[in-house]
C-alpha cells in the first residue's frame, strides 16, 4: 500500500511537471488576460510620476513573428537615459526580449523588435516600459498569430 502511494506521488509529480505546466501557465495567462491596450487601433496612454507615456506599435494590425516598430512618447520630465521595453507573456517565461529605443526628439523614442509566437496559442503579451531612474509602466495587449 505504501509502495502504491509512493508510486502515485511520483506519477503526480512527474505529470504535473510534464503535462500540466503549459496548461497551468496558460490558465495563469487567462487570469491576467485583461488587456489594457488595443495596439491594433492606435496608441495607448498611461501616466507615471506625472509623465504621460504614449505607447504605439506599427505596422497594424500587430502580428507576431515579424519586425515591428515600437514607439513611445513622453510628455513631462524626460528620463536621464533612453527608455527600453521588455516584451514577455504574463505568467509564462519566454526569455529576455528587450527592445532598445533611440531618441527621435521631442520626447519620442523608437526601436524595432519582434514578438514571438507561443505554440500554446495564447496571444496576450506585455510590454514593460522602463524609464530609467523614474519607474516602469506595463501595457498588456493581444497580438495576431
Amino acid at each position: 500500500m505504501l509502495h502504491w502511494l509512493k508510486s502515485l506521488c511520483i506519477w503526480i509529480l512527474l505529470y504535473s511537471l510534464t503535462m500540466f505546466i503549459v496548461p497551468l501557465q496558460a490558465a495563469e495567462i487567462g487570469r491576467s488576460a485583461a488587456t489594457n491596450c488595443d495596439v491594433h487601433h492606435g496608441s495607448c496612454i498611461q501616466t507615471l510620476s506625472n509623465i504621460q507615456v504614449t505607447f504605439e506599435i506599427n505596422p497594424k494590425p500587430v502580428k507576431a513573428m515579424m519586425e515591428l516598430n515600437f514607439k513611445i512618447t513622453l510628455k513631462g520630465k524626460q528620463p536621464e537615459a533612453s527608455p527600453y521595453i521588455d516584451l514577455g507573456m504574463p505568467g509564462m517565461e519566454m526569455g529576455p526580449n528587450r527592445v532598445s529605443l533611440q531618441p527621435m526628439g521631442k520626447g519620442t523614442y523608437q526601436g524595432t523588435g519582434i514578438i514571438v509566437r507561443c505554440p500554446s496559442g495564447k496571444k496576450i503579451w506585455i510590454a514593460k516600459i522602463t524609464l530609467p531612474d523614474i519607474g516602469k509602466v506595463e501595457f498588456i495587449f493581444d497580438v495576431i498569430y
Binding site: 511537471l17 510534464t18 505546466i21 503549459v22 509564462m92 517565461e93 519566454m94 505554440p119
Partner: peptide, 16 residues
C-alpha cells in the same frame, strides 16, 4: 535563461 526556462516551459513542451 535556458536553465530557468528548462524547469518551466521546456518541461511542459519537451518533457513528454
Amino acid at each position: 535563461t535556458g536553465f530557468t526556462v528548462g524547469f518551466g516551459h521546456c518541461i511542459g513542451m519537451c518533457g513528454p
